[in-house]
């Protein structure tokens, strides 16, 4: 079983003395949070797609300038909540200053695919959670799972285990509305025995779980927060 390497909390890494470590950590942070922030600005602050895209990038630039991550205090809030409150602060300042953004302020950080994010917004279920924290949480989990699924696929392919991922894809990832194929059906369509399907699925789920827990470390501010978030996600709380 190939387990992914254990990641450190991104907050810890953005405080590192090593410049390169800090840079990589910040990039990881942007990668984990840009979509939730973009969608949050669209849904909660009612920005149009262009405004939200610009504000998302500009927010990260200002976070770097103001050293927002290093100023995070785990005793006061969850990191996710802290970052959302920072976005609120940023955006209400923008509104107060009546500022209009120049385009592409922080585009060089990571290339952010706002078109995809916008497409996802259009696909989202009609129910937008009333609670802002819940809204941000859901987008945050979505981004987390998105990345874990992507990495699971890449890792399976790089090991030449495409079939393993396909079992997972058909059983756990397929559109829930379309119903679930049986192990026998999956076995038939992939030319595997049902026992192999069972084993593949168990192995993929185990690796997926490890990836989720690992990525979760990157986006939480402390061990306690990681534990609480993990328990909520994997203890039936979603």
């Amino acid at each position: 079983m190939a387990f992914p390497p254990t990641r450190l909390s991104v907050v810890a890494r953005t405080r590192s003395d090593d410049e390169e470590t800090r840079r990589v950590a910040f990039a990881a942070l942007v990668e984990a949070y840009w979509k939730p922030i973009y969608k949050y600005l669209r849904l909660q602050w009612h920005l149009d797609p262009d405004q939200a895209a610009d504000a998302t990038q500009d927010f990260f630039v200002s976070a770097l300038e103001k050293d927002l991550i290093a100023r995070y205090d785990p005793a006061r809030a969850r990191f996710r909540t802290y970052l959302r409150l920072c976005v609120d602060g940023y955006q209400s300042n923008q509104v107060k200053a009546g500022r209009r953004l120049k385009r592409g302020g922080g585009a060089s950080l990571v290339s952010l695919d706002f078109t995809t994010a916008e497409g996802e917004l259009r696909q989202r279920e009609p129910s937008v959670p009333a609670d802002v924290d819940e809204l941000f949480y859901r987008e945050w989990v979505r981004a987390l799972f998105d990345r874990a699924v992507g990495e699971l696929r890449e890792r399976a392919e790089s090991r030449g285990r495409r079939a393993m991922f396909e079992v997972f894809e058909r059983y756990d990832l397929a559109d829930p509305a379309a119903g679930r194929p049986s192990y026998a059906e999956i076995a038939g369509s992939l030319g595997l025995t049902p026992a192999t399907v069972t084993n593949h699925l168990a192995a993929m789920r185990r690796e997926f779980r490890a990836l989720v827990l690992d990525h979760l470390r990157e986006v939480t501010g402390s061990e306690e927060e990681w534990e609480a978030e993990a328990r909520r996600l994997l203890g039936g709380g979603w």
Partner: peptide
């Protein structure tokens, strides 16, 4: 990559928690 709906995420949470003996 197709978009993960809320119900898809709920299913993935369950899959990640499902004990594999």
């Amino acid at each position: 990559m197709s978009f993960l709906s809320d119900t898809a995420i709920a299913r993935l949470c369950e899959a990640a928690a499902w004990p594999g003996f």
